[in-house]
Design a protein around this nucleic acid. Structure first.
Lengths: 182, 182
DNA sequence: ATCTGATGATTAGCCTCCTAACTACACGGC
DNA sequence: GCCGTGTAGTTAGGAGGCTAATCATCAGAT
């Protein structure tokens, strides 16, 4: 998410000042929200840059991880629909990701023998070794970014983030006012 | 940041298991990292959906906010370069954002009388009223998403997120190994 | 046996952002 | 006064996501 947050967040005094004109503004909520977006964006951008050094995009990396068995314990091949669902993208997007991975020889596509509508995607040896070449650095990136936090602080952070994520999902139906439904 | 994180994050036991194969994996760091990305992404997506109802994108909204004086206390017009810098996008991207906003009549472009290289972007009355129509709902969105957190928890969250963001910026030069510099 | 509806994958076209190349203008040395 | 250098803004082209429409296949009803 490259945008919506400013490079320099407004100071808290400015938020307090702004409440006078905008009674709906909750200063502490706004501050927490903006900091969440910024921290998430910076962490994401950094991983994206790291993956980019290995000719890898976040999307393609996610697909390889889903096909990689050592972490998840599910060694079998998966369909594009499964992968799209787990990765949180549309099937159309997954088609494009698999196209690129197949072109680079990291995965193969095969028809499911029992249902010819479905494809089975599997990791090639090259895909496997490519992933294992990237993973140590990826894990080190995560560890380095979280290094300033103690174990206790990490647990607290996860707890607070889960409260927010749960709330966000609970609110989900965002379409209330048919304002610009064109 | 639509991708890189899974819809369902791996359980903590799986991470502990995975350490056996990947000594670089720090389970608590990984868990905190994945939760940060997911919470940030969900909050962002929700705001994006809300803005979309008003024919507004995060980028265009950010530009309007930067030109809006009541929050920042800087009433004067700004150049595209300023705006790009504050919004954290390239100047080329800012050109596109201003193009759209100008087409919709929300901002105007004028040449700086003292330096004809520069443009001055200013909010039109229509831009002003459009923004003020969106802001209350936007602030309510933020408040609703942060509602489960107490004031104390919000302060803790901001403190922890700032530690991470500071660390991420400190690590910044990500290009260490010329692996796939093609 | 065939038609109908559902499901999986793909294609086509759009939006937003990016980098890189280009144009227009300002300023300082000669 | 002219020319090279630097700066502001724009244009052109690419990557990655999305939605909507299309094609292929299966499964069940007639």
């Amino acid at each position: 998410m490259p945008l919506l947050m400013l490079k320099d967040l407004p100071r808290y005094e400015c938020l307090l000042e702004a409440v006078r004109h905008h009674p709906d503004l909750d200063p502490s909520a706004c501050e927490a929200y903006l900091n969440l977006l910024r921290a998430g964006d910076e962490a994401y951008s950094r991983s994206e840059a790291f993956l980019g050094e290995h000719d890898m995009s976040p999307g393609r990396f996610t697909v390889l991880m889903l096909l990689y068995d050592k972490l998840s314990g599910m060694p079998r091949d998966q369909t594009p629909a499964d992968l799209a669902d787990k990765a949180g993208v549309t099937r159309a997007t997954m088609t494009g990701l698999v196209d690129t991975l197949e072109r680079d020889g990291l995965v193969t596509r095969q028809h499911d023998p029992h249902d010819r509508r479905m494809m089975l995607i599997q990791l090639t040896p090259k895909g496997h070794s490519t992933l294992e070449a990237i993973l140590p650095g990826h894990f080190q990136q995560m560890a380095a970014q979280m290094a300033p936090l103690s174990e206790q602080e990490r647990k607290t952070l996860v707890r607070l983030l889960n409260k927010i994520a749960g709330q966000t999902r609970a609110l989900e139906p965002v379409e209330a006012s048919p304002a610009a439904a064109s």
